[in-house]
Design a protein around this nucleic acid. Structure first.
Lengths: 225, 225
DNA sequence: CAACATCTTTAAAATAACTTTAGAATTGCT
DNA sequence: AGCAATTCTAAAGTTATTTTAAAGATGTTG
């Protein structure tokens, strides 16, 4: 979950980034209009948190730029010190997904972020995969069919990473980096991934590799069918 | 996908190379300004990952050299410890395709590499060849007509290399270099290429060399019609 | 067209990648 | 601190892939 925080007030920018990163997202920041504009032109973020009153330009223009972009599925959460209804409506008319008035609680922002990510990926509510595997990202509860299965944190993270990248081959390096950060990089040994994959497979179904296919020499792939 | 990594910090250079190679690219490294300059004069890389602060010269000059080069379609990703916006803008003005600030996650670099390669080759998404052969580079799935064919990693890499160089004769030396890197141990003997080509032909169609033509004495050529 | 080089094809050997198990080390919790 | 759960390490067993090797086929050149 890649998030861009376009906010010129440094301390707020930092606290948002830290908070959301603790929640498992990857954040980048933009401190003025130009940096924000440049960054969204370069990369498709999942969410942009956008302060309307940027130093060197209006956040509204960033919003327009985002919505003009083809193919991107970026959601926008507007934050603004201005509480006027007009502003709110203009933002939402232009396609913003949510609106928060300063000051706000980070927990509040976070729950909106989560809601958007849910909606973005799975059409809201609990995550549904394959009619059979359900992942409730709020409660971290996973069910296969009617049965709830109990996963450890690593297994849960791994499953979520697979599910959000289904039908895509994920190398062990990418998996390692996503689950362990890059302090474990250069370790030329990803054996523990074998173990976690094996455990996850066993817990998911009796038929082992039904969902998690091995791409020999390349990695693993979570398949929908 | 041939990538040059111009980075003087040895451990970073190595981890980038290892990571990107696992992702199916072929990497070469340059540890100082002169080596980088020499290598780009010699070969048209698909991407150059360029540290701006090279030991014996400025990366900016490498960038200029690259952009002066006629006919080359090399993309540049700048990595720099310097986070100033000015630097970024100078790099982008000079034609860099992306900019990363140290430290960064290798997964992040990889996703930018992938984005560039997609853009460079096909304008994103799945690759389509010949109306009949489709290659999904995310899922590593290859279909001929309606049928999915299962390829090993080497076969897949070989096919992708052929497809991205269609209608061009590829010598066994070049093929070997792109699929195995500059491992000089293998350079004597290209027999295994015969085997891989043969296997790939068999899997692609019943009519053998329909797509992969032999250029006797020169190499192979993947033809569109 | 004969001699040679290059390529095709097959099968088996060698290697590398993955699976699985069990136990050690670490972490988290009361 | 002591116990339980989790995560990581190590190693043996299994399977897929890559490479080697060698015999047969085809193209090239004088």
């Amino acid at each position: 979950m890649k998030i861009l925080i376009a906010e010129d007030e440094f301390s707020l920018q930092q606290s948002i980034a830290i908070y959301l990163e603790k929640e498992g997202n990857v954040c980048e920041v933009a401190s003025d209009f130009n940096e924000a504009s440049y960054k969204i032109s370069l990369y498709d973020y999942d969410i942009v948190i956008l302060d309307l009153n940027l130093l060197t330009g209006s956040g509204i223009d960033i919003l327009k730029q985002l919505k003009k972009k083809q193919g991107a599925n970026t959601a926008v959460i507007i934050i603004s010190a201005n509480n006027s209804l007009d502003d709110k409506l203009e933002g939402l008319d232009l396609g913003a997904d949510d609106y928060l008035t300063k000051p706000f609680h980070l927990a509040e922002l976070n729950s909106r972020v989560k809601a958007i990510l849910r909606r973005q990926m799975f059409g809201g509510g609990a995550i549904v995969v394959f009619n059979e595997i359900k992942i409730d990202t709020d409660g971290h509860v996973v069910t296969v069919g009617e049965k709830e299965i109990v996963l450890t944190k690593k297994e849960y993270d791994l499953l979520l990473f697979f599910v959000t990248n289904k039908n895509r081959v994920l190398s062990k390096e990418i998996i390692a980096e996503h689950l362990w950060g890059d302090n474990s990089d250069l370790i030329d040994n990803f054996d523990f991934i074998y173990v976690h994959v094996n455990n996850l497979r066993k817990k998911l179904t009796k038929e082992g590799a039904k969902y998690i296919k091995t791409a020999y020499g390349s990695g693993y792939k979570f398949i929908e069918d």
